[in-house]
Design a protein around this nucleic acid. Structure first.
Lengths: 246, 246
DNA sequence: CGCGATATTGACCTGAGTCAATATACGTGG
DNA sequence: CCACGTATATTGACTCAGGTCAATATCGCG
């Protein structure tokens, strides 16, 4: 049984949203590819940076939606609340991914809440200013469109899994997806580099913590994963893949 | 008990995807707003039209994705198949909405199947040609981006409903959504203008036909809806709204 | 070292699925 | 235009996957 958390806990301090990091992030954003360095330098001052503590709210569902955010460092989770108060986790974002508002309609509201899952540095820009950029650079708008298309596809895949797959498949599916996105090879296996509790996994799979615990205990007994408090590593990726695509 | 189907069955014949309809549709597409009539006329020849019979396949999941489609007339349903073979209905599209491929990567595959739910006339354009239009007209790309954002939001709302809401709320929710999109006031109530079986509703809500039948029988006994073979009309919209947002 | 958050495990319950029988609407062809 | 046959819908009895409730264990932080 592994002792301590194997998660990497070196985080950039909030105040280290430095100019260097900003320019690095902005110039490497997938949707700014195709812009020149000068264009990036011009856009740079429109962004503000800010650090968030682990667990801190970045914005809340149904609040006025005015800004577009970009993760510079850390992990951001997007959630909705059901009427009964259960949290539904819609997505997990890492450095380089955007979230928030793509519009500048005064009446628009955020359709989900965003929380820092660990210490986060995020850049943000006012929605209207971002739309100016889109208007001037169609290749940026096309990139954003492509990313939204990909996200829609993933959300629809989630609908399919939740609608039709049994619990072990659903859990295996999200573990594999997270490992693809955040996996880091170490001595144990493929470690998912984010704090990830049973409750988080339950909120990602439309299950309860108890069910997640039972299934993951079995996965561990079978030697498919190794797991502890707030972390999961995949040991036998193939076994999980087989399970998902039976 | 209403006797016959109250659905409007006047459909444009497949061969009536006429030039007049084409230009009307193209010039009224939400994402072509902002283009001049001359620009629309220029784009027009890039589209081909085709009619589909009720139930006919337009394209299949995992086939090479090469074309972008636009519904000119009729209803198109988008579906995925689970491994166990159950159909999951992802969306229902009406005139003016697009579906298919927004890319021109040779290796891309359709992530869902598209079927004509009733007789359909659709226009389509090759993905690469459409991207040329996007590149030249950033306002079109921005419109598409906005539509994809809206669709993602709806898909995420579906994830939340399926994850957390009991069956009667889920059914009420999709009936209201369909009525908002396709509702037509008539003597019975607000009729959903598309062929809509119990199985369709089951595929939209991650339920079985039997459960849908039981819940809808109850809705009808309560006087909230009127329904028959392949049609549903909403009588007491408020009651359903109350149920959904308890 | 001790406390609170996190995780596990068990016993039991229940909402929705499954299986099966029956009913009813609609299209088809005589 | 009616009779028949098939697809669609309803209803009931039973089952079961996963939820609920509750007790206990364990980690890691302060």
């Amino acid at each position: 049984m592994p002792r301590n958390t194997p998660l990497d806990q070196d985080h950039i301090e909030p105040h280290m949203c430095s100019m260097d990091l900003r320019l690095y992030i902005l110039s490497h954003l997938p949707f700014f590819q195709g812009l020149s360095t000068e264009q990036i330098m011009e856009i740079n001052p429109l962004f503000v940076d800010r650090g968030y503590d682990a667990g801190e709210l970045i914005y809340a569902e149904s609040n006025p939606a005015t800004r577009l955010f970009v993760v510079a460092d850390g992990i951001v989770k997007l959630t909705q609340l059901s009427q009964s108060g259960k949290e539904v986790m819609l997505d997990v974002l890492k450095s380089g991914e955007f979230f928030g508002s793509l519009t500048h309609e005064p009446k628009d509201q955020y359709s989900e809440s965003a929380h820092a899952q660990n210490p986060v540095c995020a850049l943000s820009i006012e929605g209207g200013q971002f739309r100016q950029i889109l208007k001037m650079h169609s290749q940026v708008a096309i990139r954003i469109m492509d990313i939204m298309t990909e996200r829609l596809k993933e959300s629809q895949e989630m609908v399919r899994m939740i609608s039709t797959a049994p619990v072990d498949q659903r859990i295996a599916f999200v573990l594999l997806k997270l490992a693809d996105k955040l996996g880091e090879k170490n001595e144990v296996g493929l470690l998912i580099q984010m704090p990830l509790s049973r409750e988080d996994i339950a909120n990602l799979t439309a299950l309860t913590t108890e069910t997640v615990s039972r299934v993951m205990s079995q996965f561990q007994k079978d030697g498919w994963i190794k797991t502890g408090r707030q972390w999961v590593a995949i040991v036998q990726r193939e076994r999980l893949m087989d399970l998902v695509s039976i």
